[in-house]
Computed example of a mutant assay.
Amino acid sequence: MKKGFENLTTLIYLLFAVILTGISLAILWWSTTEVIEAIKNYVNKKEFILVMLQSVGTVIISIAILDISKYMIEEEVFRNKELREPKEARRTLTKIMTIIAIAVSVEGLVYIFKAGANDMHLLIYPAMLILTAVFVIIGLGIYQKLSYTVEH
């Protein structure tokens, strides 16, 4: 019974990892077509830069989704259900949180360009996004320091 349940959950993890991979590739495809369209229909510099920055953000998000999918396959399908060492957990969490911080930073940058062109009062949201990314990095640094100290 236990072995059957483990096989079922492994299959479910594999299915969701494959779905996430498909979503990641779809996002990447969409982003690429947006860039190609922006190059074909080059209207003005400001609009072109916004499309390019948005595409960078979506590519980073796509990579984050692909990385999560890879993690699910490595940890839940090919290995035992638990991380073997705290060092592995720290590395995996660091990688995922770094990608999230980059994605949030790029999104904040895109919104700064959009808001700065329209209304200066709209800069509060992008500033909060970038501040959030800073807090994520600070929190990650604290986590790294504390977990490294515990490991040794």
Results as ranks from 00 to 15, higher is better:
Tyr13Trp: 11
Val18Asn: 01
Ile19Cys: 10
Leu20Trp: 10
Leu20Phe: 15
Thr21Glu: 07
Leu25Met: 12
Ala26His: 10
Ile27Ser: 08
Trp30Glu: 12
Trp30Val: 12
Thr32Tyr: 11
Thr32Val: 12
Thr33Ser: 10
Thr33Tyr: 08
Glu34Pro: 02
Val35Tyr: 02
Val35Ala: 05
Val35Ser: 07
Ile36Arg: 10
Ile36Asp: 04
Ile36Glu: 11
Ile36Pro: 00
Glu37Val: 12
Glu37Leu: 14
Ala38Asn: 00
Ala38Arg: 00
Ile39Glu: 04
Lys40His: 14
Lys40Ser: 13
Asn41Met: 02
Asn41Gln: 01
Tyr42Leu: 10
Asn44Trp: 03
Phe48Pro: 04
Phe48Cys: 05
Gln54Phe: 13
Thr58Pro: 01
Ile63Pro: 06
Ile68His: 04
Ser69Asn: 02
Lys70Gly: 12
Tyr71Cys: 04
Tyr71Asp: 01
Met72Val: 09
Glu74His: 00
Glu75Ala: 06
Glu76Arg: 14
Glu76Val: 09
Glu76Asp: 06
Val77Thr: 07
Asn80His: 15
Glu82Gly: 10
Glu82Pro: 02
Arg84Trp: 06
Lys87Trp: 10
Lys87Glu: 11
Ala89Pro: 08
Ala89Thr: 13
Ala89Cys: 05
Arg90Gly: 09
Leu93Gly: 15
Met97Val: 09
Met97Ser: 09
Ile99Asp: 01
Ala101Asn: 02
Ile102Met: 05
Val104Leu: 02
Ser105Lys: 03
Val106Ala: 00
Glu107Asn: 05
Leu109Ser: 03
Tyr111Phe: 14
Tyr111Pro: 01
Ile112Leu: 11
Ala115Ser: 06
Ala117Val: 04
Asn118Val: 15
Leu122Arg: 11
Ala127Pro: 14
Ala127Arg: 12
Met128Lys: 14
Ile130Pro: 01
Leu131Glu: 12
Val134Phe: 08
Val136Ile: 15
Gly141Lys: 08
Gly141Tyr: 06
Tyr143Glu: 04
Leu146Ile: 10
Ser147Cys: 02
Ser147His: 05
